[in-house]
């Protein structure tokens, strides 16, 4: 199972689940990272972290350690 932090630049994938035990899970869900949604990794910061995802028509920057709680197909 891959996580959103492992996506490549420009790659799109579907969210299949969110690890609810992760402390950042709630905020990510609030911002629209829910199962069934497509996300695209649109950019990485210097040093590859944080990364930016396109989600539900907007762009959200997330640290890799936090993006790892988003499971993707």
């Amino acid at each position: 199972m891959r996580t959103a932090s492992q996506l490549n630049n420009g790659e799109t994938s579907e969210i299949v689940g969110v690890d609810l035990n992760h402390p950042s899970a709630k905020r990510l869900i609030e911002l629209g990272f829910t199962p069934g949604q497509n996300i695209e990794l649109i950019g990485k910061s210097i040093f590859n972290d944080p990364v930016a995802f396109s989600i539900r028509g907007t762009v959200v920057a997330v640290r890799k350690s936090e993006a790892s709680c988003i499971k993707v197909r």
Partner: peptide, 11 residues
């Protein structure tokens, strides 16, 4: 505290 960085990037 658990460190976190989640930030919406506006258009």
């Amino acid at each position: 505290d658990k460190s976190s960085f989640i930030l919406e990037l506006p258009t």
